[in-house]
Structures are given as C-alpha cells and as structure tokens.
C-alpha cells in the first residue's frame, strides 16, 4: 500500500491572522488544527484541548468576535481573521477582564483546565446579552451549556456569569 505517499499532509500554506491584537504571519500545515496552531506554533498554551471532537468547549476562542471551537477549526480557515484567546482577555495594563475577576471572586474554577474556554464562552455571552445581571439561573444555565466543567458542578460558574455582568455594568 502506498496511499500515504500520494498526498501531502504536511503541505505548508502561509496564513495572516491577528491574534490578540497582534499581526501574525505564519506557515502552517494544511491539516493543522487551530488549537494546535495557537498552542504549539504560537505557544499560546492557555487554550486547552479537552475532547478534540467539539463537544466540551475547553478550546473555545473568539474568531472575529464570536466564540468558536478551535479544535474543530483548521488553522488555514482563519486566514485573514482576528482571533482572541484567553491570553488576550485581560486589559493591556494587566487588570482583569470582568469574566476573569468574576471567576476568581466566585470560585468558579478548580483545576482550571476548562476555565479558559469557559471564560471565552462567557465573554461572548456578555457581548450578546445585557440582561444577565438579573437573569434566572435556568436561563444562564441554558446559555453556558456548550461547555463542560468536571470540577465545580457549575453552581459557582452561574454566579460568576451574573457577577461578570455586574462588573461589566459598573465599568460601562
């Protein structure tokens, strides 16, 4: 059998992306996942990979402002896009994003592995909904049901979503 020599799995393509506000131009293999590109090529290891089949949400990043699974996206697909990862969540002066502040205050993380993806999903939610401060638990739970956390039992994450909305409101 010689099928493995008939395609070029490692063919390289140049992509230009903006990552956390910084212009990046890199050659990537056509089959490289966005998660691997971020983690191993750019060494932004804050984005974690929990299932590699798009279910757990640990690898969530923002692509052009929208939360997306980086384990289901190829690096070549984001050519020309703007990517934001957990490393780009805090402000330039190092002060925490309301979601980060809220996760810490509410003890919404334990092992921390799902946390970056969870925070990116919640950051997206904050952009989308302005009623979170007073939202019922059930409605918040529906909106965060794209991410798995195995440590916290979600209770404190629900509180953190509400707290993040409060902090955003105070700032804004």
């Amino acid at each position: 059998m010689t099928e493995t020599t008939e395609f070029e799995p490692n063919a390289l393509v140049r992509i230009n992306v903006e990552v956390n506000g910084r212009a990046v131009s890199e050659e990537v293999s056509t089959r490289l996942l966005l998660s691997d590109f971020l983690r191993h090529q750019l060494r932004l290891t804050g984005t974690h990979v929990g299932c590699e089949h798009g279910v757990c949400g640990a690898c969530t990043v923002h692509i052009d402002g929208t939360p997306a699974r980086s384990c289901l996206t190829l690096a070549v697909q984001v050519d020309g896009c703007s990517i934001r990862t957990v490393e780009g969540l805090a402000n330039a002066d190092g002060s925490l994003h309301p979601v980060q502040q809220a996760f810490k205050e509410c003890h919404a993380l334990q092992c921390g592995f799902c946390t970056p993806g969870f925070m990116m999903a919640v950051a997206g939610l904050l952009d989308e909904r302005d009623d979170l401060r007073t939202a019922e638990d059930d409605s918040i739970r529906e909106d965060i049901a794209g991410n798995v956390c195995r440590c916290t039992g979600y209770m404190n994450i629900v509180s953190a979503v509400r707290r993040a909305a409060e902090l955003t409101n105070e700032k804004g």
Binding site: H48, T85, V86, T115
Partner: peptide, 17 residues
C-alpha cells in the same frame, strides 16, 4: 480567595502539554 487562580485565569497554567 485562591492563591492559584490568578495564573489559571490568565491562561498561564502549566499542564503537561
């Protein structure tokens, strides 16, 4: 509040990979 959180929420965790 936890000592370990600041690192973990900034994406500066150090898991094996």
């Amino acid at each position: 509040q936890r000592n370990e959180d600041d690192r973990l929420i900034r994406g500066k965790g150090r898991y094996v990979d």
